[in-house]
């Protein structure tokens, strides 16, 4: 095994342990809280007698806590998260469509924000210390400080006043579509405001990250050496500086993924976007603890996976790790 493989397997091992710890956390958090909310939930009169018996058996609700823990682990790995108290159907049949809806919002927002952030970060870093750098950096810090849930509200206010875009949900309620395109255009209409909110908030953050990574790189000797070769500013920036600045950016973005998800949750709640964040919000109000328990695990696993992908991407792009 070479260094690179050792490094990767260490990361994968850490990911697996993280997931196990997260699931354990999830179990004890809900069982050990005052009143054992899961037990109360699963005896809720909202469920049928049959459902309660099935759950009792599956999760061993009458067994000692350690046996419940083992059963919980097993069920989680099988994708079996129990039954939602509010929806009265299996948690996974509610959770996975919501996760999919979340990605429709989160992925484009992240990608657009990263590209815009690289662009403005480059602009500011190259002019560091100048007035235009001050404006870009100041604006980015300001955007970064805007509360997501407030910005969304302002957008809603404006949209309602101008009748510009729908402010809630993914589709017009009860709409019947003549074609796939009609449905898609309705989706895009609904996507505009939440996408704008989330992209804007992430954009400020990514600009600052890119600017700072670039400023770091621009001090390196190889940048000066490239200048002494007669390279133009644009050439140095694009060929030497940006590729080297993107490496730390990848890890910082991966590490900040938890924050990104936080922003997405708030955006979903503001615009009633039927993603996993909105699901969590509704579940809190409905005291639907099985949903909360599962949503936590799923989000954590997605983030751990994204970190692994970032690790692999990083080591692929950096020859210092690739060839050891």
């Amino acid at each position: 095994m070479n260094e690179f493989q050792k490094y990767l397997s260490k990361r994968v091992l850490f990911a697996i342990v993280s997931v196990l710890v997260i699931i354990s956390f999830d179990f004890f958090l809900f069982r050990l809280m005052p009143g054992n909310p899961i037990l109360i939930d699963y005896r809720s009169p909202a469920l049928t007698r049959q459902q309660i018996e099935a759950l009792s058996k599956q999760f061993g609700l009458n067994l000692p806590i350690w046996e419940q823990y083992v059963l919980f682990m097993k069920n989680t790995f099988e994708g079996n998260f129990g039954i939602s108290i509010f929806y009265k159907q299996s948690v996974s049949s509610v959770l996975f469509p919501a996760l999919y809806n979340s990605l429709i919002l989160l992925l484009p927002a992240t990608i657009i924000a990263i590209f815009l952030g690289i662009f403005t970060g480059k602009f500011a870093a190259w002019r560091r210390g100048s007035a235009s750098d001050g404006v870009v950096t100041g604006t980015s810090m300001a955007i970064y400080s805007i509360p997501t849930f407030w910005l969304g509200g302002i957008f809603i206010l404006i949209a309602i006043k101008t009748h510009a875009f729908p402010v809630s949900g993914m589709y017009v309620t009860g709409a019947v579509y003549s074609s796939v395109f009609a449905q898609l255009s309705d989706l895009l209409d609904h996507l505009v405001l939440p996408l704008a909110t989330l992209t804007l908030v992430l954009f400020g953050q990514f600009t600052i990250i890119m600017r700072n990574s670039l400023i770091d790189v621009l001090q390196e000797d190889y940048i000066n050496f490239a200048k002494s070769k007669g390279a133009s500013d644009r050439y140095i920036l694009n060929k030497h500086a940006v590729p080297n600045a993107e490496l730390p950016m990848i890890s910082i973005i991966a590490v900040n993924l938890g924050l990104t998800v936080g922003g997405a949750i708030l955006t979903e709640v503001v615009f009633s976007w039927p993603g996993i964040g909105f699901l969590i919000y509704s579940a809190i109000n409905a005291r639907d603890y099985p949903i909360l328990q599962a949503a936590f695990v799923i989000i954590a696993i997605v983030i751990v996976l994204a970190n692994i992908i970032a690790d692999i991407l990083y080591s692929y792009l950096d020859p210092r790790i690739r060839y050891q």
Binding site: I22, L257, V261, N307
Partner: peptide, 15 residues
């Protein structure tokens, strides 16, 4: 650093 802090906080605060 990796875990989604806000989700965690929402749940704990709710409980």
């Amino acid at each position: 650093i990796v875990i989604p802090a806000l989700v965690f906080m929402i749940i704990i605060a709710a409980l």
